[in-house]
Every structure is written in C-alpha cells, then in structure tokens.
Design a protein around this nucleic acid. Structure first.
Length: 171
DNA sequence: TCTCCGATTCACT
DNA sequence: GTGAATCGGAGAA
C-alpha cells in the first residue's frame, strides 16, 4: 500500500515513528529497482525546536519545510553528505522527519549514497514520484526512542528530546 | 565579500 | 579518542 499525502499531514511526532518499518522503493536511472526498510528516523519540529534548521526562520534553505506534507527535503552536510528528509504537517508549519538508517545500513550519509540521493530530489513530492516511493507492507515494528544525534549545539532542552525512533527488532 | 560551522564518516593514533 | 575532508547556507560587515 502506497503512503499518501494524508499520512504526512500529521504532527511530526506521529509521522516519525509511523515511518519506522516502511519500505522505500527506489527506481534508479538505469531502470533497476531496490527496496529498503526504514529502521531509524528523527523528528525535527518547527521554529521553536533549536535543533531544527527552521529555528532560524524562513530562509531559501528552510523554505522547503514550510511546503505541503510529503515534500522531500534534501540538504548537504559537511560538504559531502546528502540528508534525506520528508516534510510533515500542514503547509506553513516547518516540520520534517530525517531518515537516519535503513535495514543493513547505519547512518544517513551512507543511506543517501546507497539510494543515490542528491539535490535533484529536493522539493519534489514523495507521494507522486517516479524515482522514489514509500510503501506500507503492514510490518509491525517494535519501536524504542532515544536522543537525537549531533544536535548538542541546540542546547540541553532540545538536545535531550527523545525524538529519535528506532526499530528494536532489527539490528 | 568574508568567516564560521554543521541532522557525518572514515582513517589514524 | 582525535581530526581531516569539503562546501553551501546564514549572518556579519
């Protein structure tokens, strides 16, 4: 079952855990197709969340997070890695879910390398896309939470939010 | 323009 | 455990 825009039209704290266990289907430019199960996500929630890029307000970069739910937000970090995110909640509310890991690969940098994610995906829709789709195969994950990674700069209050979601039954 | 630094990873010590 | 690689966004000037 293909995830629709309604799935993403909810608070990021609901969407992020719901994305655990879902299937990413990637059709590469050469026509080959691969499937990956999502095993780890993180929630970035609005302008008040200091760890969220949108905490700096609306800028050309964060503009994407204000777009409609189901929009893909891709950005470059440390000059070499693309991060894959999905925008959630209604337009004008800047929230996004970072896909931190897929089955068999730990780390968002490796993930986007495997999936060949780059800036051409930025601002595209995930629910109506030729190259990348999200499916629910009714898999029921065992979800645990933990602190988000690499957000110490956001200060104690925001760095300590347990907004990382992990499938406990996969390793 | 110029400077600072990050939602990371990997090679070394 | 430490540090380099590497570049575009954001803010200061």
């Amino acid at each position: 079952m293909l995830l629709d825009q309604k799935f993403f039209d909810r608070d990021v704290l609901k969407v992020a855990p719901d994305l655990i266990g879902k299937i990413i289907v990637r059709e590469f430019d050469d026509g080959s197709i691969k499937r990956f199960r999502i095993t780890q996500t993180e929630a970035y929630r609005g302008e008040k969340d200091k760890a969220c890029h949108a905490s700096k307000g609306r800028t050309p970069r964060t503009e994407i997070m204000y777009h409609k739910p189901g929009t893909i937000y891709v950005y470059l970090i440390y000059g070499m890695y693309w991060m894959l995110n999905f925008v959630t909640a209604k337009s004008e509310i800047p929230q996004a879910v970072l896909i931190r890991a897929i089955e068999g690969y730990n780390g968002p940098g490796k993930l986007s390398k495997i999936l060949k994610i780059d800036k051409t995906f930025n601002d595209q829709s995930i629910v109506d896309n030729q190259r990348i789709k999200l499916f629910d195969d009714l898999y029921k994950p065992q979800i645990t939470t933990d602190l988000r990674i690499g957000v110490d700069y956001a200060g104690e209050i925001w760095a300590q939010k347990p907004w990382r979601f992990i499938d406990n039954s996969l390793t």
